[in-house]
């Protein structure tokens, strides 16, 4: 039982103290940042400058984003929405996933977001990385290119909007298949409690999506066989409330705002980082920017958990 392996697990060379801060102070000295890690010659998929770490308290950041949002609405000009996900602070709890489900009623067939849980051991130290994933509201959306024009439109504020009346059946499935990020699901109309002795009313409650009121009551659900996906909680944005996932993130990993507002937090932290230089990102122009550490020593198979 007291094996050699067990004794040596604790001997993994740890990242240096202030690892994140050390990265932040780097210029082009990439090699210095990986001192102590086994560098296996992987290619960094992002800009030379590592992303900033927001170390302010979560509540302070939420209030800042709230003020940014209210300023945008007060100006009355068209916003350009941007979301930032800092996987370094994500703890993989799925609070965002559940908040989204409660805010945007969906059924067992799918949800607007999920958190990919990546656990692997590249060298001698285990690694746990969590990646929240939702529709990136691409500027050049593959889903739109997969269906007849007009079924999917790119709004001026950046949100990719589905026309539920027309994007149904085979068109819905084509759109879902076209998404490289599996961000779209087909609503089959089922609820969680319909197979139980007492189907519950909260699953049938009216809600607003893309400007229209719907309900998922079995038999009255106008969203059956439609493709559905995250729409940045725009029903909340325009009444001055941030998206559900952003507000509930206890790791402090989610940021959101208007890129057209020069003073906004998202503008500040994404300067020069609009395009994620992964192999898929150049084509689609995502509006969800990921801040992440490079993942040392990951084999190709492990990368494919996220980069499929």
């Amino acid at each position: 039982m007291a094996s050699e392996e067990s004794k040596t697990i604790g001997s993994i060379e740890p990242p240096r103290r202030g690892f994140f801060r050390a990265l932040g102070s780097l210029g082009a000295g990439l090699a210095a940042a990986v001192t102590g890690w086994k560098a296996l010659g992987w290619r960094r998929a992002q800009a030379a400058e590592p992303p900033p770490v927001l170390a302010e308290a979560q509540g302070t950041l939420l209030l800042r984003m709230q003020r940014d949002l209210e300023a945008t609405l007060a100006r009355g000009t068209t916003p350009s929405w941007l979301m930032v996900v800092d996987t370094r602070k994500c703890i993989g709890c799925d609070a965002c996933t559940v908040a989204c489900r409660a805010e945007n009623p969906t059924g067992p067939a799918g949800a607007f977001r999920r958190v990919i849980q990546l656990r692997f051991t590249p060298g001698r130290r285990p690694v746990s990385i969590f990646k929240p994933s939702n529709c990136l509201q691409c500027d050049n959306p593959p889903c739109a290119r997969a269906v007849p024009e007009g079924m999917i439109r790119k709004r001026p504020d950046g949100i990719v909007e589905f026309d539920y009346g027309r994007l149904r059946g085979p068109y819905a499935r084509a759109a879902a298949a076209a998404c490289p990020f599996k961000a779209i699901h087909i609503d089959d109309g089922k609820t969680f409690t319909q197979t139980t002795p007492a189907p519950q009313a909260y699953e049938e409650r009216p809600f607003v999506e893309n400007g229209v009121t719907y309900s998922r009551k079995p038999g009255a659900n106008q969203l059956v066989d439609t493709a559905r996906k995250c729409n940045f909680c725009n029903h909340l944005l325009y009444v001055g409330v941030l998206p559900a996932c952003v507000r509930t993130c206890i790791g402090g990993a989610m940021y959101f705002g208007d890129a057209n507002n020069p003073a906004s937090l998202v503008n500040e932290i994404t300067q020069g980082r609009r395009r994620f230089r992964g192999h898929e990102a150049a084509a689609v122009g995502p509006r969800v920017i990921y801040f992440t550490e490079p993942m040392p020593g990951a084999s190709y198979m492990d990368c494919s958990v996220c980069h499929y």
Binding site: R17, F19, V53, A55, A57, G59, R88, I91, G251, G252
Partner: peptide, 15 residues
């Protein structure tokens, strides 16, 4: 989690 995680993640993130 809501009570402790934010303090830990920002503490670790900032060094």
């Amino acid at each position: 989690p809501p009570l402790k995680v934010p303090k830990i993640t920002r503490g670790v993130a900032s060094g």
